[in-house]
């Protein structure tokens, strides 16, 4: 159990949120020109990092808005929270 500082609503319990997986996976600009390998990479392959990971979350039982989070998956400590479209505050 951990608390998440929603960029729109403030600090709420994690159970109000839905995890959306790895962030900053860019949707292909020319989908018709993609090879099967490139589609698989986009759709399925994930870094699944043990350590600092960039990911998407949705405040599904609150404002229902999507945002990004930097979290250490080895201990669930949140390093940063930032809005969609913003650059990550840490590398």
């Amino acid at each position: 159990m951990f608390l998440i500082n929603c960029p729109f609503c403030g600090e709420r319990e994690q159970s109000e949120f839905k995890a959306g997986g790895e962030a900053h996976i860019v949707r292909p600009k020319q989908p018709t020109e993609l090879s099967d390998d490139e589609w698989a990479e986009y759709l399925f392959m994930r870094k699944n990092i043990k350590g600092v990971q960039f990911e998407r979350w949705n405040h599904v039982h609150g404002c229902r808005k999507w945002f990004n989070m930097v979290r250490d998956t080895s201990n669930d400590q949140i390093k940063a929270v930032y809005k969609m479209g913003e650059k990550p505050p840490i590398k």
Partner: peptide, 18 residues
């Protein structure tokens, strides 16, 4: 659960979430 951690050492991504 640590399959991706080992795969990442070889520069390989797997279709997994832990």
């Amino acid at each position: 659960g640590h399959s991706s951690v080992i795969a990442n050492m070889a520069g390989l991504k797997l279709p997994l979430e832990s």
